[in-house]
Design a protein around this nucleic acid. Structure first.
Length: 330
DNA sequence: CGTGTTTGACCGGCGC
DNA sequence: GCGCCGGTCAAACACG
């Protein structure tokens, strides 16, 4: 869909931009340079394979990156994730710990505790719950979590990308399951979930209300499977080691990031500006050339897009630790 | 027919 | 306790 209009991204010239403010609504956040050691660690914890070494002064890096970045450490994390993924829903705590081990879990409000399982197990089976019409049988409402069981959020991670297309291709297949109008923003927010039945990763896409050219993509959870295909640049061949070994721990292509941990729901933060340019290629949505989730697939054709991307870890729990003093508004 | 999107309704958390 | 709002569900629909 957003596929065609996007062959060329006009927004690619900027090398550095300085946004005066970031109007993140619900997930307001802070930013800090990815060069900071902390972020790397942080990302690793999330299982994302970020590497702040794009080391191009202007924050630019070629497309390839993902495939060539050290997959080693990635694998470690991912294998565990896969295990988690395959693990029955009841073995809760352990899976969570897998990628939040270092997260002190400053549990706040609802977001906290043991993510993955509870949230996934109870609401995961979207497809199978096809049941009959809308409302679930009187007995056990599918969407209802067991009483007393709070909805748990998985670690989140946001990317701000300057792009005209909302849904950026990241190598995975997503299924849109909702769209909501965002308060104080003319742009709606779309909700996606990974189409892999075992994968519970979700993604939220919205456009910055203040700067419509910026797309804020928030990932929640981690993939426990391989990417299905890579951006049509075909750059990633199944045997290239990327699709073949890597376990979905990748965010949309990018080399330099800005991270911003999500904060407590509804908490408002004063945005910190900054942006680093990242030029990379992204594929446009394509659903026919890749089909098996677990089978590495080499994407189809491709076109390149230049976008500015800023990555933002948004684990609410982590937030407290990474936000530099003074950056917090509230 | 399979897969993905749209869209209104519903649910639950949180702030007041 | 109430209302707002974010997030999710699922029927209906669209498309290849």
């Amino acid at each position: 869909m957003d596929d065609d209009k996007d062959n060329r991204d006009p927004v690619s010239k900027t090398e550095f931009t300085t946004q005066s403010t970031w109007p993140l609504d619900s997930d307001s956040a802070y930013f800090f340079s990815s060069h900071d050691v902390r972020d790397n660690t942080l990302l690793t914890e999330f299982g994302w394979n970020f590497h702040p070494d794009g080391s191009r002064p202007d924050g630019f890096s070629e497309l390839d990156p993902i495939g060539t970045r050290d997959m080693s450490d990635l694998t470690a994390t991912s294998s565990q994730l896969v295990a988690d993924c395959l693990r029955p829903a009841d073995s809760s705590s352990s899976s969570t710990a897998a990628f939040r081990s270092s997260d002190p879990a400053p549990v706040v409000g609802s977001a906290s505790t043991n993510p993955s399982v509870s949230s996934t197990s109870s609401e995961d089976p979207p497809e199978k719950s096809t049941g009959s019409g809308g409302k679930p049988p009187p007995e056990i409402p599918s969407k209802v979590k067991k009483k007393g069981q709070k909805r748990i959020r998985q670690p989140r991670f946001a990317f701000m990308t300057k792009s005209e297309v909302d849904h950026l291709e990241d190598g995975y297949r997503w299924r849109k399951y909702g769209q909501k109008a965002v308060k104080n923003s003319p742009f709606p927010r779309s909700y996606y979930r990974c189409t892999n039945s075992k994968c519970t990763v979700k993604k939220r896409v919205e456009r910055s209300s203040e700067d419509p050219t910026i797309v804020i993509t928030t990932y929640e959870g981690q993939h426990c499977h391989h990417t299905v295909a890579f951006p049509r640049g075909g750059v990633i061949a199944p045997e290239s080691g990327f699709a073949g070994h890597q376990l979905a721990q990748l965010p949309p292509v990018s080399s330099h990031f800005m991270y911003y941990p999500a904060i407590q729901p509804r908490e408002r933060v004063s945005p910190v500006n900054f942006t680093r340019t990242t030029s990379h290629q992204l594929a446009s949505p394509r659903r026919d050339d890749d089909d098996d989730d677990d089978q590495a697939a080499g994407g189809g054709s491709s076109h390149s897009l230049d976008r500015q991307t800023t990555a933002v870890p948004t684990d609410e729990g982590l937030l407290g630790d990474i936000v530099p003093p003074g950056m917090r508004n509230r």
